[in-house]
Amino acid sequence: MSAPPDRAVVIGASAGGVQALLALLPSLPADFPWPVLVVLHVPADRSNVLAGLFEAKCSLEVKEAEDKETVRPGVVYFAPSDYHLLIEENGDLALSSDEAINYSRPSIDVLFESAADAYGERLVGIILTGANNDGAAGLAAVAAAGGVALVQDPAAAYARTMPQAARQACNAALVLSLERIADYLKGLKAE
């Protein structure tokens, strides 16, 4: 087995997030060379249908993240509902049932902060639409570790609170439309 990738894209979204992700993830090509980790707030319910919904529409493999699974490039991992998703420095995914952060489990902050630790500057963090403040601290951590911070333009977002909070918490964040975010991702290279 080859070594796990030394880079990743992390995405956080809440209210309106399914539509926003549908504008983003299906546009990624089958040979997209980075792993993509997604926290999307959904009602806490075990019957998680997100991965199936996106798998049908994406060229990339889409799956629910499993504990201790080694990340692979070109795969989209969704955090399961009611668990936090973290990434270890050795490239293994980890789940946790620690308390909710800002009423959120999974929490975008938890994923982004662990990814910032694991990947440093080889990380792209993206905050999309949402009606709470989750992800703001996480995006700031991504930028502080030298990673790229992108925020969906709040004016065009279904719910603007989350991208606005992220922009305020993270001066280095670039504010882009969904189309431009997709373009940015498509420009990411294997090296």
Partner: peptide, 9 residues
């Protein structure tokens, strides 16, 4: 223990 969680705690 899985390090990322223990670090958070």
């Amino acid at each position: 223990y899985a390090r990322a969680s223990i670090k958070r705690r």
